[in-house]
Design a protein around this nucleic acid. Sequence first.
DNA 1: CGCTGCCTTGATCTTCTTCAAAACGTGTGG
DNA 2: CCACACGTTTTGAAGAAGATCAAGGCAGCG
Lengths: 254, 254
Amino acid sequence: MGTQRRHTPLAVETVHRAHCTVHERLRVLGGLPFFRSLDEAALAQANQAFHSEDYAPGAVVCDEGEPVRGLHVVAVGKVKLVRHTAGGQDVLLEILGPGGFFGGLSGTPGERYTEGAEAITAACVLAVAPAAFREVLRAHPATALAVLDVLGERLRAANETIRQLSAHPVEQRLASVLLKLAHSVGEAQPAARGGGVLIQVPLARKDLADMTGTTPETASRILSQFQAQGWIRGGRRWVAVQDASALERLAEPA
Amino acid sequence: MGTQRRHTPLAVETVHRAHCTVHERLRVLGGLPFFRSLDEAALAQANQAFHSEDYAPGAVVCDEGEPVRGLHVVAVGKVKLVRHTAGGQDVLLEILGPGGFFGGLSGTPGERYTEGAEAITAACVLAVAPAAFREVLRAHPATALAVLDVLGERLRAANETIRQLSAHPVEQRLASVLLKLAHSVGEAQPAARGGGVLIQVPLARKDLADMTGTTPETASRILSQFQAQGWIRGGRRWVAVQDASALERLAEPA
DNA sequence: CGCTGCCTTGATCTTCTTCAAAACGTGTGG
DNA sequence: CCACACGTTTTGAAGAAGATCAAGGCAGCG
């Protein structure tokens, strides 16, 4: 992929520690789909129950199988959810930006994490203990119903991934994943910087491979193809989508 | 797979129409994880809100994309949840027996089915309108929390499937699926009938293929291998697991 | 300036799909 | 009760997609 002579265009990387202000906490929590129905007082009270944790890039937030410490909400930075296999392979289930959440959604005590979480960039993560969250759910039925919708949406997304893995070749899965990332953590670039939508995450080939169920080599080959078509630009640990509609046509040949 | 000269050992097939009695309705509804916390009066009231529908084998309960008619609970028979792809391929997400449920779990109106449902055997399915179920959820917070747990469990299972599809070869995925089915709809057989655990569903090779993301031919080849090892027995539209631990070793080489 | 990782690319090999044909079972109608 | 016809299953052979192994190139960093 050697035609580009540019350096990392990502706007991250410099910070080695992220911390979030009280103002940010309230903004992030208030923006959660399941806290939207809370009034200001209730939100402030919920905020009390959360504590915040700072992570350096690459730091582990929680490990698969460990007892659930609560519900975690990303306030600053990016976090990836990973599952490991016996054979040493990894499966990357999701990349979360600010407002993304994971962990004990149901508030039931005694659960265990079914996936590991790792900070990709410097990150600040808010957390609330299972019991406390369960209390909020019990006190505010509308909140519980909202969580239901969120979980339903996640389940839908998971089933869609299953469909992709079962029925589509790597090329199409990779196109889908790039579109999904461009949509969730993408950032439009000015024409002076090449235009397109930059995926604002340090994204190694191995990460893309783990998201699509393939190998870094195959991912690299296909990205090279895409780049040759002018559909994307990419380099060491970054990718930008230049022609989303072309990728869409490839991903879902309606 | 021609060494066996036996006929279908399945205990189904004869009935062309299934209907469930009032007694069965209450038993099935009362057994649902999210109705367990309801007292008898509340349960009877919830029961009022449900109506029942009978389906012949192969009948379609709902189609992907159609507006959600409510929450559906299988009372009698077996139902499969299927997703279709543009290329005409099918993905079989789940096989539900009595007590299994699908559709609008969150009770939010305006949803659409994300998967189709089809009766595999003659079946009776109970259904409740979204608004009515939402009312129950709102009135009984404990019920909503229980639904949360159920959805969380489903999400876990979906992620596990994603892991399997991404990281394991067909052989291991097939072993996993057989074990899962044996566990969910299996029935121990007396030694006189060959022993093992019979999967009590008319299970075509294509169904197994759609569950593991492969083709009927490949599924057949691998089943033949398994049979040659003495791990399973199988025939036209049926399979019995003879050596679960061997399959487990294959599925998860710890 | 050289080191360390990440990325790319090539060659080979395995796995799985595809196409094709034969064998089998199951239910049907004689 | 038997024979036939249909859909399912099995099996084979060829081909494609992707994994694996291996080597070289490029970016960022001390």
